[in-house]
Amino acid sequence: MTSIDVRDLTKEYGARRAVDHLTFTVRPGRVTGFLGPNGAGKSTTMRLVLGLDRPTSGTATVGGRAYAELPEPLRRVGALLDAGAAHGSRTARDHLRALAASNRIPPTRVDAVLEQTGLAEVARRRVGTYSLGMRQRLGIAVALLGDPEVILLDEPANGLDPEGIVWIRSLLRGLAADGRTVLVSSHLMNETAALADHLVILGRGRLLADTPVQEFIDARVQPEVRVRSSDAGALGDLLARHGHDATRHEDGAWTVRHTRAEDLGRLLSEAGVPVLELAAREGTLEQAYLDLTAAEAEFTAQPQEV
């Protein structure tokens, strides 16, 4: 069992506090989405976990040890930070060979991860000739090189084509299903909702939420039901009579809040109102996230006058 433990982690660059007393745990066996706007401190936190930056205070450990104390760390932790890290004049294969040598990873793994990331055909081409998506795949190949139990990826979907995005989704879900610890940062809501089980959300370096994805959405967004009838008048009367919070659209359909499709369907059927369309609309991660950040903005807003 290898978790990432961040405890009271703070990092200041001069007067700016990039990470502010952050505490959370990333557990194995699930994909944890690391969300927040640009500049929220996601990348800084990842660098602190990898021992690349020195924290101002607090600790970040992997499996209970500081990253720098891990012998041959690529065998325990794989990370993608910058897709531009590979030298443009070197081939992908040579790039991976050097990294493998440094951690005594068998050279067979180099070909295995090239195959796994779909780069086998272009492995002997110089990285400078690669598209952004291919470099991103190479960065993911580096992360997978040591067959690590812990995987950290900073914005892995950047530059990937739709096919690549589907690929990385199933790759990460597979890694989590193997029991590995997977932390994936993103500022893309739909992407994160599609692949994460759990969320850690940052805003201005502070922890805003640490919660399962579905719970987060359920707690923040009321489900809605969209309903349309051939007898718009009867439908409107019925909704009004039962005190539903409903809005009528131009096309004659209604959006009914604070109810479920099952309940509304029964009501319409009992009242004999003909139904053309009845659809539950689940809350999205995006709505939940915006609700959270709106609340956060209100909470942190300073009064303009004293």
């Binding site: 990898l50 021992g51 690349l52 104390e69 690529l74 930070l81 910058d82 531009g84 590979a86």
Partner: peptide, 17 residues
């Protein structure tokens, strides 16, 4: 070559010492 494009981060992630 280590000081371009985040190469040093990758190098030091592989060799933290």
């Amino acid at each position: 070559a280590e000081f371009r494009g985040g190469a040093l981060r990758l190098t030091l992630a592989a060799t933290p010492d």
